[in-house]
Structures are given as C-alpha cells and as structure tokens.
C-alpha cells in the first residue's frame, strides 16, 4: 500500500517535471519567433534607412525637380484626400454592419462584398480607377483619382475595424443607454462610437499607412509626374500644390520610376532615399497609432 502510494507519487512528480520542461521549451520557441521578427524588422528598416541617407545629397531633399520633396508632399496630400473620402463612408458602413444590418441574405452578401474588396489586388483597383476616373471622365492623371483608388483599398479596412470595434464593446453600454430612453442613433453617436474610438483611430492610421506605400493603384490614376510651383496658391492652377486635379507622383511611384526608368545618374540614390523616407513615415504612423490608442484608452480609464 505504502509502496504503491510512493510510486504513484513519483510518477506524478515525473509528469509535472515533463510538463515544466515542455513549458520551458515552448517558452523558448516563442521568444525565438518573437525575436526573429524583431531582428527582421530592425535589420530591414535599419538597412533601408541607413542606405537611403548614406547616399543622399542635400539637393535630393528639395521641393523641386531633382529632389523628392514634392513627392513627399504628394504622398501626404493624397493619403489625406483618400482618408477624407474613406473615413466617413467606412465608419458609416461599419456602424451599419454592426448595429443596423439584420442577419439575412443581404447582409451576408454585403459582408462577402466587403471581404472581397479588402483582398482585391491593388493593380486591379488601379486599372479600374484608370478606366472610370480617367478614361470615362476624359481627365489627365490626377491626385483626386489616385485618392479615390486608394479609398477603394482602405474603405473595407476602415469598415471592418469599425464593425469589430463596435461589436467588441460590452453589451451593457448599449443596454444602459437604451434603458434610459435614448434612441439607437443617440446611443451610437454619444456612447458607442466614442467608446470604440481608440480602435477606430488605430484602424484609420493603419489604413493611412497602407495608403503611403500604395504604388500599383496609383500608376494609372495619380500619374508618374509632378510639377508644383510653390509660389502659386491659386487652387485652380495646374501647378498649385493644393490642386487635387493635377498629376501627383508619390514616393512609392518615385521609387518604382527611378528603378525602372533610371533617367538620371542619381536614380539609385533617389530611390534609396525615397524608400528611407517612406519607411520612416510608415513607422511613425504605426507608432503613432499605438501611442494614441493607449492615450485615449487611459483617458477613458479603460485599463484592459
């Protein structure tokens, strides 16, 4: 009896020992994988940034021909225009999907449509944009068409983040508000959307990050040239920086152009510097998204 007990005891000890060993091994594996991604990101970003700035000359930063300043401005302006279009529509559609859509065939179809839209190859969107925004309207390449094409890509992203953010809120917020005699619209506008704001803002910033890097969708919409005269502030002028109906080459297009056409001797350096600037922009936005989310959450007292 006693012997039996002790043997049971030791087999139990062995089992626990095995479990602990397995636990240590798996913990190690997870650290390794996490470390691998960290190293990959640092090596990748570091290489691009260092190489980009190492070959840079001062004139390359100019907001004129030969420099990439105008391309930098075009990138920011185009993403701004794209967000102006896709944020309101994306949030409204996310609210509709989360709060109003009744389960059924129409909703199911809409969901498939949104999912398909989000996995659309950007070159297809670019060609679609070329056909609809350029050919059909008899326009030249322009920033606005580029912004529309980028919105097509960012819309599903913003819509699904909004929907997910609203769905992940505790049901008690909605019940509390409706239980006081608020309408569903009042509840959404004054309770649910503010509560979901941190996640929606993150989604928007990540969508913006995607917009920065977009090239294929812009090839045939925003165009591959840029001509800004920084002394002209008449918005109707084709050389005014703020005119959305002028061609506007972005940084990613500049990289593509410089590496494929190589019209000047310093093309490689220009492409490297553009990559470095783009990399910094995307990193900044990513970090911004997370700090902003944390800030707002902290302000709302949500420590989750």
């Amino acid at each position: 009896m006693q012997q039996n007990n002790s043997s049971k005891h030791s087999s139990g000890d062995m089992r626990i020992g095995m479990a602990l060993a397995a636990d240590r091994v798996m913990t190690g594996v997870f650290y390794l994988v996490a470390g691998f991604f960290l190293v990959l990101l640092f090596a990748f970003a570091g290489y691009i940034i260092i190489k980009g700035f190492a070959g840079a000359k001062l004139y390359m930063f100019a907001f004129a021909k030969g420099g990439i300043g105008n391309q930098f401005f075009n990138t920011v302006y185009l993403v701004f225009l794209a967000l102006l279009i896709s944020v309101p529509i994306g949030i409204l559609s996310g609210v509709y999907m989360a709060e109003y859509a009744k389960p059924g065939r129409v909703t199911h179809f809409l969901r498939i449509a949104i999912e398909t839209l989000s996995s659309l190859p950007s070159i297809v969107v670019g060609l679609f944009g070329y056909l609809v925004f350029i050919v059909l309207t008899h326009a030249q390449w322009n920033l606005f068409s580029g912004a529309l094409a980028v919105s097509i890509l960012s819309l599903p992203l913003i819509s699904t983040t909004t929907e997910d953010a609203l769905r992940s809120l505790p049901e008690s917020y909605k019940k509390g508000s409706l239980g006081m005699g608020a309408t569903l619209r009042q509840t959404i506008v004054t309770v649910l959307l503010p509560a979901a704001a941190p996640r929606i803002i993150t989604g928007v910033i990540l969508a913006a990050g995607r917009g920065f890097g977009e090239a294929a969708a812009l090839l045939y919409t925003a165009g591959m040239s840029t001509d800004i005269n920084w002394t002209v502030w008449n918005i109707a002028s084709p050389t005014c920086a703020l005119n959305p109906f002028r061609p506007g080459e972005t940084l990613s297009l500049a990289i593509w152009g410089a590496r494929t056409e190589a019209l000047s001797a310093d093309s490689a350096e220009i492409a490297n510097l553009s990559s470095a600037v783009l990399m910094i922009m995307v990193l900044t936005f990513s970090i911004l998204a997370h700090t902003l989310e944390g800030r707002i959450k902290k302000k709302m007292g949500d420590t989750k």
Binding site: Y173, K175, G176, S177, G179, G181, V191, A195, M300, D302
Partner: peptide, 14 residues
C-alpha cells in the same frame, strides 16, 4: 419614465 439599473454596474467609459 421607467429607468433601469443592471446587475453589473455599467457606467459608460466617460
């Protein structure tokens, strides 16, 4: 006219 208090306290995140 008929308000409600729930099982779990549910203040809004405001």
């Amino acid at each position: 006219r008929v308000g409600m208090v729930f099982q779990q306290p549910n203040p809004f995140p405001k």
